[in-house]
Structures are given as C-alpha cells and as structure tokens.
Design a protein around this nucleic acid. Structure first.
Length: 483
DNA sequence: TGAAATGTTGGGGCG
DNA sequence: ACGCCCCAACATTTC
C-alpha cells in the first residue's frame, strides 16, 4: 500500500477533509502531518490563536489515534520537511487543502512545483471556504466588492456538499520517523494569561460539533433576534473552530439545510438564512483579501491614505486595550477579549468605532491587537471588519455612521448584564446609568459605591465632541480621489 | 450592522 | 364643540 502525506494546516479535522479523502479514495495510506512554520506575512500568528492551535493539535492527535492513525509534528520549512518525511516514509504523494492568503498562495504554488520536480505526486484541494475565491465573480470577471450581490450570487450558485462521515484511517504501522512532542512547538504562553480560556472553550473537532449542537438546540431559532445581544448566549461561538478548520464552512451550510428541513416552524427558515449570511460574510472577506492583497494593511478606499489620524495616541490606545476607557460597553468588550480570547461581534463593532472614529486611532492598531488577542484571529475576517467600521473598506459603512456606545448599550445590553459581568466595579449601578456612569447623579454613584475616576475611569473622550471632530476629519478627504 | 436633527402626525388636556 | 398647546411616536433628512 502506497502512502500519501496529508499536510494539515487550517483543516484540523477528519470529516469533510478533501485531501484526506482523496488519499483514501486513491487507495493510499494517509499520513497526517502538521508543520509549525515561522510566521509569514500571510499568516500572522497571534498569541491567543496559538494557544488554540496547541489544543487543537492535541485534540486532533488524540482523535487520529482513536481511528488508527496519529499526527506527525514537525517544525521548519515545509519544502524541507515534506520532502524529508516523504523519503523517510516511502510516500509517493503529498496532498493538502489550499489556503487563500495571498502570501501563502504564492508560496504554496512554488512549493507544489518544487515537490513535483522531485518526483512526488502533489495534489491540492479546496480549502475551508464555501466556494474558492475565483469561483464566484461578477459577470465582467472581476471580484465582488459589495456584499449583497455577492450573497445573492452565492445563494443562486449554491454550495457543493462535503459532509462526509469522518473516515477511519486504520492502515498498518508506519516506519519510525521523527515527530516532535507537541510541547516542543512552544505554542503555550510563558506568562499564564490563558488561565481562564479552558473554561470558555473546547478546541478540536468534537468540541466544534458540540458547540454546533448547543447552538442548534438553544440559540438558532432566536438567532435573528438575539445574535446582536452580548448579554445572551445568542451566537454560535463557532468562529475559532471555523478558523482552524475543525469544522468546515460547507459542513455548517449543509447541517443548517438539514436542520431547516426538520424544523418546520415558521421563522426557522429565516433563522437559517441569517446564519448562512454570516458564513457568506466569511467567504466574502476571504475572496476580498485574495483579490485585493494589500487590504490586510492598507485601506481599500485610497482616500483614506490621506486621512488625518490622531498622533501621540499611545496612552489612549493602551487604555482601550486594557478596557479602561471609561465607556462601559467598550471596556466590557475589551476585558471579555483579554479574559476569554473572544468578543461578541456587536461589541467588536462598538469598540472598533470608538477607536477609529472617536479616538481617531488608525484601524491597523486595533486590527493588530485583535489579531493577537482573539482565539478566532483571522487575517481576512479581521481586515474586512476593521475596514468596514473605519469606513475605508469594501461595502463599508459610510464614514458618518458613527456608533454611540451609550445608545448601542441601551439597545443591545438593555439591563446592563453584559457590562456588570465584565466590569464588576459598576455592578451596583442601576440600569438607567450603567452605560453612562459619568451622567449619574452623585447620590446614585455613592449608593453604588463608585467614586468616579477612582473606582472606574472617567470617559477617555467626550462622545459628542469627538464625533464632531471625526466628521470634520472626514470632510478633509471626502472630495479626494478614491484610487 | 448609525445617530442626531428636523419634520409630521395625532391624541389628550384644557380654556 | 372648538382651537390651542404639548408631546410622544414615528418618519425623513442630514451628517
């Protein structure tokens, strides 16, 4: 029986894994391998995501061992490691699922060519998107830049099935080859800032399906109503599982379809569509980064190259990062992020709006912080999200859509439960004042045991005044050329 | 996936 | 019964 190396990256699962499946269908024994690389431009490796990766790899190895295989771990240059492993194992083939970050795509094409030149059979397969970025274009052959037409096209074209039963891999012993112990990849932090993470997450394929089961049973029917509520468990929390490919977007799409057919209640179809729409945003972000590679660091809208951002913002940025802006819902979000490696999407938008509009700090600063601290940190999603809020991206909110965190708090955290959870020093403040403690009468503050500026910071900016300054800054560039 | 200012409408209190 | 005012609720416009 011949062997095929199956090089795993953002597809840390057995189910719906095209490269793994192809090896089995070709009658080859798959040998799963993960290679830890030095971070490249296309793959910034944030600290929180690296924590997740460690546990995801551990889960995958355990799962593979229960199904007749195991995960080989290596460190270094894939070009060197894959060739060396193939020789040591007598494997004639290398299979992998494609990635779409521009830098990695270019690198992988060269790698594919070089490995082929050594006589290996190299095949690559669709990665973890609903459709590959070049498979859904406008009629004129260019990429979509507006979400709604993209979403309509995706619904029209549909998604190819991929939810196969996870295969069994029993296929005989492997020759002894060097595989590093997981701990030697050095993925866990030296300082234990990750202490609370395990209480919030279960990385790995089975953890992903458990999260999905909970979501289907408890949250999906009310998803259109509750998905914007950070105080309720209304979202799927699948983003880190999706990022590492522990579950595929195609599997989710199909599972949703089955769920929609089983659940005949009115409204469930709308819920299914609402969640699929979020999956489509993920694909939209990836195809956008693929077609506009510079948008990970530069605005898509060229006018913003001349935007008058604030200077000397180091202290304000630090307070934003630490959740000490004095704006409760923003501080709650930033503390949720630091504590759990995740932040509710609605709060991400509010926190990002405060940073880019009220504080006028360049969106790249916020994007870098999120990439480092989110367990679901994803270059494409993150770049799209920040540019969307900053007003300089594809299908972005018009610049003048500036979030008012007090108003947003009242709408989406009406009782203040979310703020109280993450900003406990405001715990005794009545809901009337929970999102604007600076407006609370002295007596109310005293009764809640809060001295403004001592127990909780005064607001870093005046919301109304900074809003006006942001609009004035927009005035300075709005008439200039987009390219 | 906005907020604030401005405009419109309609019910109710009251002289 | 009527006009007037107030104001909440909603709609529209503007940034």
């Amino acid at each position: 029986m011949g062997r095929a190396l199956v090089w795993l990256r953002r597809d840390l699962r057995r189910g719906d894994n095209p490269a793994l499946q192809a090896a089995l269908e070709a009658g080859l024994q798959p040998v799963p391998v993960y290679i830890h690389e030095a971070p490249a431009d296309g793959a910034p490796s944030g600290a929180a995501g690296t924590w997740w990766l460690h546990h995801s790899l551990a889960a995958l190895d355990q799962d593979l061992r229960q199904h007749g295989s195991r995960l080989l771990l290596r460190r270094g240059d894939p070009a060197v490691e894959l060739l060396q492993l193939a020789r040591a194992l007598g494997a004639g083939h290398v299979f992998w699922n494609r990635r779409y970050e521009p830098v990695l795509q270019a690198r992988d094409r060269i790698l594919e060519r070089d490995l082929r030149a050594t006589g290996l059979g190299v095949e690559t397969f669709p990665g973890n998107l609903l459709r590959e970025p070049w498979r859904l274009l406008k009629a004129d052959g260019t990429a979509y830049r507006v979400f709604t037409p993209y979403w309509k096209a995706l619904q029209r074209e549909g998604v190819t099935a991929g939810a196969s039963t996870p295969p069994d891999l029993a296929g005989g012993e492997l020759p002894p080859v060097a595989s590093l112990p997981l701990a030697e990849l050095g993925l866990l932090p030296g300082i234990p800032w990750d202490a609370a993470f395990p209480a919030h997450w279960q990385p790995g394929e089975s953890g992903a399906w458990q999260a999905l089961a909970r979501f289907l049973a408890e949250a999906l029917p009310d998803y259109p109503r509750d998905r914007d509520r950070p105080d309720l468990p209304g979202t799927s929390r699948l983003s880190p599982h999706l990022h590492f490919g522990e579950i595929s977007s195609r599997q989710l799409w199909l599972t949703l379809e089955q769920w929609g057919q089983e659940q005949v209640q009115a409204g469930n179809l709308a819920a299914m569509e609402a969640f699929r729409r979020q999956l489509a945003w993920r694909d939209f972000a990836h195809q956008l980064l693929h077609h506009f590679p510079h948008t990970a660091s530069e605005p898509l809208d060229g006018r913003f190259r001349a935007f008058p951002w604030a200077t000397d913002y180091a202290e304000a940025l630090r307070r934003w990062q630490q959740g000490r802006t004095g704006i409760p819902i923003v501080d709650a979000g930033m503390r949720e992020l630091w504590h759990s490696g995740w932040m509710h999407n609605r709060v991400r938008m509010i926190a990002a709006s405060l940073l880019t509009k009220n504080l006028r700090i360049p969106w790249q600063e916020g994007a870098a912080w999120f990439l480092d601290t989110l367990v679901d940190a994803d270059l494409a999603n993150n770049s799209l999200g920040w540019q969307w809020v900053a007003g300089c991206g594809a299908d972005a909110a018009p610049y003048f859509r500036i979030f008012n965190p007090v108003r947003q708090g009242g709408r989406f955290d009406p009782d203040g439960a979310y703020v109280r959870r993450w900003v406990p020093e405001l715990g005794r403040l009545p809901a009337r004042w929970i999102h604007c403690p600076w407006e609370a009468p002295a007596q109310v503050l005293a009764q809640a045991g809060i001295e403004a500026g001592r127990d909780y910071p005064l607001p870093l900016v005046d919301l109304a005044a900074s809003r006006s300054r942001a609009l004035a800054a927009w005035d300075a560039i709005r008439g200039t050329a987009r390219d």
